[in-house]
């Protein structure tokens, strides 16, 4: 199973998470987002970039409540709240945004 990014293939698992975290590019993020029917805007990108930075620093994808708390702190409560996050990522801000960010599924998600 793989994504096609401008002619190159990027392997993913049965749920769509990429196998090799080093394969991630912004182009790939757009491809995954399209497959997820998410139309990427600046706020989507802010969340995706936050997740990537969090993973880089702590080696885990944050739990959804940690993500929302952090977004609230950095971008304000209008964006950093549960409802808005689910509007951005209808299948779950942690699960779906992590997939687009090229990270493993968050610990604790089943």
């Amino acid at each position: 199973m793989s994504y096609d990014v401008n002619g190159t293939t990027v392997e993913h698992d049965e749920e769509g998470y990429i196998t090799n975290l080093g394969d991630w590019t912004e182009d790939l993020a757009n491809v995954i987002a399209t497959a997820e029917e998410v139309d990427m805007n600046d706020e989507h990108w802010a969340v995706v970039n936050f997740l990537r930075e969090y993973y880089e620093e702590y080696q885990i994808a944050p739990a959804v409540r940690v993500l929302i708390k952090s977004i609230k702190k950095s971008m304000g409560p209008e964006i950093g709240n549960n409802k808005y996050m689910y509007e951005l990522f209808p299948y779950g801000p942690a699960k779906q945004a992590c997939k687009i960010a090229g990270l493993p599924k968050p610990t604790g998600c089943v």
């Binding site: 702590y58 080696q59 885990i60 944050p62 940690v66 952090s70």
Partner: peptide, 14 residues
């Protein structure tokens, strides 16, 4: 193997 020592620094968020 994965170096999980940085993850201890995330515990405060939890």
């Amino acid at each position: 193997v994965k170096n999980f020592s940085p993850t201890f620094r995330a515990l405060g968020d939890y």
